[in-house]
Structure formats: structure tokens, C-alpha cells
Design a protein around this nucleic acid. Structure first.
Lengths: 233, 233, 233, 233
DNA sequence: CATGAATGAGGTTTCATTCAT
DNA sequence: AATGAATGAAACCTCATTCAT
């Protein structure tokens, strides 16, 4: 690892810890710089997201991302030590967002189905907004090799956190009698995550047959009640 | 297109037509070479499949594929004009297999649900066997940029064929009252295709919690009846 | 065209416009880098010229050119997007030099023959100096496929400019009665250009029978008066 | 050099020597095979000529030449040990043709100018016929690296033969008073050879302004009398 | 002898990353 | 801290040449 990368890591840790007044700078100047730093980092992440989506991980070049932000290649390396670090940050952010939503929903007291549907809404609502995506949707979308993810224990553990929270939600549904206890929770979770990745529905949306909002009730219907015609009168 | 590629195409078409003994070569020699050629090609495809799966499309090098087959880089280029052509052949094969299965099932007279479950079985059964995978599962798995697919009209049309056949199957189910007519067929199709991509279930299988065979009934259950606890009785 | 190439073109145009001091860089630093860049580029062009002449276009490798400059292969691609671009720059330079000379001579009022002889002097004088060569002499010398030239409209138009200027000069000579009006101007031009390419005289010079300076009067004599023994007197 | 190439050289020498009846074949069969061999060789040479002209030496592939003849790559290697040998044969043929013409003309008793004009006619007449070209015209036209020629003493000596014959012709002209003795013969020769390469006139012909036949008198006029307006009354 | 699959060296090009300014 | 030129390791691909069949 390069000297610069190390020095930045050190700085990062400091900023995590507290706003210790630096050696010779006033205690007011530092946070300003920190804020600028974060702004720029956010711009880089946004540009990277756009370029990764447009071209895929491999065909996106650091140069193009830098160009979109209006800065130089080198400037990006002052924020992210490598292309992989950059994409990791992007994915970590997405998972973190997802975790936030999960935590909020877990605390609610509405029915499990309602809450699951809200997750779906979130995943599909993003299409209209700028980005969105949940969990590893980005990872799949941009064709990131699995090896990259597998090298990052932090990402792995975040993913596990998300899945365990989802598991808890499904288990809660089983406990209340809402959900079918015969279906193993891990399979429910895995299937649900698959539905969250809108990859399969992109064409439907692109062909203007359905809007994302149209999809949500139908997908919920399938996931909750299945495609078979309802039997009872 | 290269001269060689053209000459090979021509030869292929001839061999489709009939095994006319050539002008001066024995009628036995020619098919021998053909067979050897096909064997080689199959070996290359198998190795490519393995390497693409292991490393992803971009990180798989032609050299490595050649090394796995035990031939030289150049030899691969006699069978496939480019890396993209190679991966196209792989995906085309997968789709063709899938189309074959679909056609067989469309001709059957069992219930639509039974037939859909058989498709699932096929998709998941392959894990134990060598290959498997259906439709564009490979494409997603190896992180192939969409641009590569979009350049190939032949692939596109095959995909459309498969989807239209699936649509027909679902429509048949609606007509017989088996399936819920309120859910639009395209959404059923898209959701079903999502379930066929076992990407989300790989971890479950890898962790030895479930075998592919275990998954099928549960996934069918979810797709057909949903995860909600049965109401009746 | 590559992103880099574009950004470079943009920069070039800016530098053509004016030397506006940039936002935060000193007004001295910027031209320094520009100058270094141009120096590098000149070194690359010189090395490329030498290697192309020595081995011909095809057998000259980018590696060898880079080695001669003492830089890496990649560095060349920061100045020229491709081998063809590199050779185009070389040829364009040669034509531009030639155009400059033509324009200077067209403005003079000496006799047409005198001026034509000066062009010859220029073409042959270069042998002693570093480079030289006129019009497409380099193109022929290094065995550049015509297809490469035909792809470049800029080169084509420059060549046409040069030929039209030459035509003007010959027409002027006809108008003043200096030149024989029975010979079509285009044929005069084409023949003259042929004489400018010293390819045929290289051996004579190499064998030390004649110096370039020796050749000029004889070639002029042939072009102006022919090889036939003078009749008069 | 390969075993096969050697064996072929041996055979060639035998065929040069005489038609010795071979070990076990009848003395009639051999010449037949020889004739077939020569026919095929001629076809290869014709195809090679066409492809070299069309694409240039480097961009012409053995495969394409073979394809044009309708045989396989390997078959070409039974006639020519390498691509360079093939092109050498082509150029040697062209020079030989030229030598033949020179010898015929040297024996004539018409004026030197007449005979030189006939050489020009031959060089330019070929445009209407299939090929033609004189001396090293092909070498220049297809962008063959000089190194290839310089490796072949046989070619070099043929070129020298041709030039010495030309020299003789010019000297004869000087002796009879036809030509200007002030111009050194080597310069006359070199200039004349330059005029024989129609490269510079191709555009004029292509643009349909002039036919090759149109060019000959004008070029002769320039070479013999120059471009200056005739002085005498 | 013909074929054409195989070889393997060599070439161009790309791009993540480094580092002097 | 920012810039962007330089690096250098691959990668893909081509093609003259060889050789088993």
C-alpha cells in the first residue's frame, strides 16, 4: 500500500475519533476542510455510480469518473486508494442505506407483510429518483467480480447483518401466524432478495408497459399469495 | 468478419446439408476432421465456461482458457473469432437448451404448474451435473456487460423466443383457470425468470444448509402459493 | 476518439487562443508544462521518423520508438492515440513545411523557373540536414499503406492545397511565356512532384558519386530543358 | 530453411538442368507434372500480385492469396518457401520482363529517343492490360521494406543489369549527339526510372483527366525537351 | 502432395497506479 | 492538495510457418 494511502487512513481514523484541534490550524478551519472533503467524496461517489451503471465496473475508467467530477485522476486517489476501494465504498453505502431502512421497519408494529411491501417500494421507488438499489443490487448490476467482494470482510459482515435482520422479520411473521412456517426462513430471505433486484423488470419498465409503481402490488401479490388462482370463494 | 470465419461458416452449412464425399478425399476422412473439430470446440467451450464462472468475463483471459484445454491461444481463435464470440456461443447454447426444454414442456398436457416446476427442476438440477443454467443466467453470473449482448441480434431474438414461449405457458394457465388472471403475464414471466437464476441461492447451497433438490419445492410453493400462511380450514 | 485525445485537443485549442493564467496556477507554470510537452512530442516525432525510415512503417514497433526516446511505450500513447496518428503527425508536418515554402515562393517575383529550382533545393538540401522531404515523400519512403492516408481527410486536403499552389505557380509560368503552354499543368505538377522524391537518387548519393547539391542543377536542367542536346547555334 | 524447401530447391535445379527421366516415372509423366506445377505457380503469382497491389505487402495475408487461387495455405508453401520468397519471385519476374524489353530495344537501330519513348509506352501501357510495371515499381507500390530487397543479391544484380543497360542506351544517345553530354548518365538514368513509376500519375488517371496513352507524349516531351517554352522562332 | 489446425512470437493498445512538479 | 505525464503489466488479436493426417 502506498504511503499516501496510509497517511489518509490515519487521517480518516482521526476524523472518526473526534475533532481534535490540529497542531497549528484553528479548531474551526479543520471541520471546514473536512466538509469540503466529504462533499468532494460524495461527488466522486455519485459520478462513479453513474459511470459504473452506464459501462459496467471493468469498462468504467478512473479517468472518466474524474472527468465527470471535473477533477483529475490523482485527486480520486486521494479519496480512494484504489478502484476496488471506490466500488466498495459505493456498495457499502448502498448496504448501509438498506440497513437503515431495515432497522426503521423492524421497530414498527405494522404487519410483516406491510413492512416487506415497504421494502419493495423502496427498492423500486429509486428508479424514479436518482439511484437507489438495495443490498448487492449494484454489485450485480455493474458486473463486479465476486472475488472483489469476497476480499472485503467489512462488506461481507454488512451483508450478513442485513440478512439476519431480514430473517428476524420473517421469523416474526411466522411467530404471529402471518407467514407459512413450512417454508424455511433462509429460503424466504433469499427469494425476497432476488425480487428486490429489479434487473429482470428493467425491460418491462423500459418498454413502458409498466411503471415501477405498477409492479409493486403485483410482485407483492406473487410473493405473498403466489400466482395460482385464489381458491376459496 | 474474417476470411477464416467465413470459410468456417460455409463449411458448417455444408455439413448441415449432407455428408457429400468431397472430390478427392475419402468419405471417411472428412467427417473425422469434423468430429475432431467439434470435440475441440466442446472442450474449449467447457473450459471457457469454467474459467468465466470462476473469474468473471473480464478477468478470464484467453490464455487461461487455452491453458486449461491444453492448447495454444491461437488455436482458440480458429474456433471463435473473438472473446465475445466465444462467450456468445456459450450463452447461445444455454438459451438453446432452454428453448428445447420449453418446447418439450409446451407440448405436454400436464398442468401448467407441474410444467413450471419441471423448468425449475431443470434450472436447479444442473448444479449437480456439469453445467446447467437457463436463459441468461450465465450472462449475469459472469458479469458480462450488457453492451455485448445488445450487439448480438441472434441472442436477442432467442431470448425473445424463450420469453414468448413462457408467456404462452402462463397464458395457458390463466385460460384453464389454474393461474390468477389478475397478474399480468409479463410480470409473471419476469418474476419466474428471476427465480430461475440461482444466484441468490448459491450461498444457501454452499453452506450445505440445502441441496438444490431441497429448494425446488419451497421455491415452487412461494411462486405458486406465496409465503403467507394458508388461510383455509 | 479517446477521452484523452479529446481533452488534449481542447487544451491545444486553448493554448492556441491565448495564455490566460489559469485559476490557481501561476502563469509561469502552465507554459512550462506545455513546453515540456512539446519537447517530448518533438522527441517522439524525431525518433519515430528515424525508426520509420530505417525499418519501414510496419516493421517499426512502438516499443522501439519509445526505447529510442528513452521513455515507455505508454508514454507515446499520451501524445499520439495510435501508431497511425503518430505517422499522420509526421506526414502532416512534412506537408505543412512544404506548404510554408510554397507560400513564401508564390509571393516572390523572381522567375518561375528560379522558384521551382528553389523548391528542388529545399527537397534535396534536407539530406544533409536532419529531416527534409516534401509532400508525401515520407509516406512513400516508409511504405505506408495508402489506406492509412485515405482515411485522413485532413491530410488529403493539405495535399490538395499543395498541389493547387503548385498548379498556380506553373500557370503563372505559362502566362508569362516562361513555360510551354502545350503541356497540361497537372502533368507538369505530377512530374515535378516525382522529381522531388529523391528516392531514385539515394543510391547515387550513397555511392558518393554525387552530392545532393550536385544533383540540383542537373535535375533542373532536365526538367526545364530536357535531356536532348541543345539545338541552337 | 525447412526440409521441404530444400527438397524443392533440389528439384528445381534438376528441372533447370534437363529432363532427366526420374527413377521410376516415365519420361512423359514428369513434364506433365512440371507443367501443372508451373501453371499453379503462375496462378499463385498472379493472385499474389493482385492482393499485394490491393492491400500492400504487409496487409496481404498468405491466406487471402491462397483463397484467391482456390488452394490452401500449405500449397503455397510448396511453391514458395516464404512470403518473402513469393514477393521476390514477383519482383524478379517484373525485372526480367523489363530486361527482356531493354535487350530488344538495345538491338534496334532507331533513335535513342524513340526507344526511350517505347520504354515509357511499355510502362504505361500496362495500366490498360492487367499488370505491367517495370523494374522496382512493384516494390515501391506495395510498400515492401527495403531490407527485404537488400537481402537478395539476385535481385540486386538484376537491377544493376537493368541500370547498366539503360546507361548504355543513354551513352549511345550521347555518342550520336542526340543527348546532352553535359548531363551525367547516372542522373539521366535515375530520372528516367523515376518517370517510369507511374505512382505520381495514378491520380490523374483515376480522375479520368488523362488516359495513360495521353500521358506518354507529354512525359516524353518533358524528359526530352523540358517544360520551358521552346525558344527558337 | 494437399489440407488446415496448431503454434507462438510479436504487435498494438488500455489503464490502474505512482509521483514529480 | 491537485495535476497529469509516465509507467508497466497485461490483454486481445494476427499471421507466417509447421506438420500430422
Amino acid at each position: 500500500m502506498s504511503r499516501k494511502a496510509i497517511s489518509r487512513m490515519v487521517r480518516s481514523r482521526q476524523s472518526m475519533a473526534a475533532n481534535q484541534p490540529s497542531d497549528h490550524a484553528s479548531s474551526v478551519v479543520r471541520p471546514l476542510k473536512e466538509r469540503q472533503r466529504e462533499q468532494r467524496e460524495a461527488m466522486i461517489l455519485a459520478a462513479a455510480h453513474a459511470v459504473f451503471i452506464a459501462k459496467g465496473y471493468h469498462d468504467a475508467s478512473i479517468d472518466e469518473i474524474a472527468g465527470q467530477v471535473g477533477i483529475s485522476k490523482g485527486a480520486i486517489y486521494q479519496h480512494f486508494a484504489s478502484k476496488e476501494d471506490l466500488v466498495e465504498a459505493l456498495i457499502a453505502q448502498q448496504i448501509s442505506d438498506f440497513l437503515g431502512i431495515l432497522d426503521r421497519l423492524l421497530a414498527e408494529t405494522t404487519s410483516v407483510c406491510t413492512r416487506l411491501e415497504q421494502i419493495l417500494s423502496h427498492a423500486y421507488g429509486g428508479l424514479q429518483g436518482k439511484h437507489s438499489g438495495v443490498l448487492l443490487e449494484l454489485h450485480h448490476r455493474i458486473g463486479l467480480p465476486n472475488a472483489v467482494i469476497e476480499k472485503r470482510p467489512q462488506l461481507q459482515s454488512r451483508v450478513e447483518q442485513a440478512m439476519s435482520r431480514l430473517s428476524r422479520l420473517f421469523d416474526e411473521g411466522k411467530a404471529t401466524g402471518e407467514l407459512n412456517p413450512c417454508i424455511p426462513t433462509p429460503i424466504m430471505v433469499a427469494t425476497f432478495i432476488g425480487l428486490l433486484s429489479l434487473r429482470g423488470y428493467e425491460q418491462l419498465i423500459a418498454s413502458a408497459q409498466f411503471s415501477p409503481a405498477d409492479l409493486i402490488p403485483h410482485i407483492s401479490q406473487i410473493f405473498f399469495r403466489g400466482i395460482v388462482a385464489p381458491t376459496g370463494s
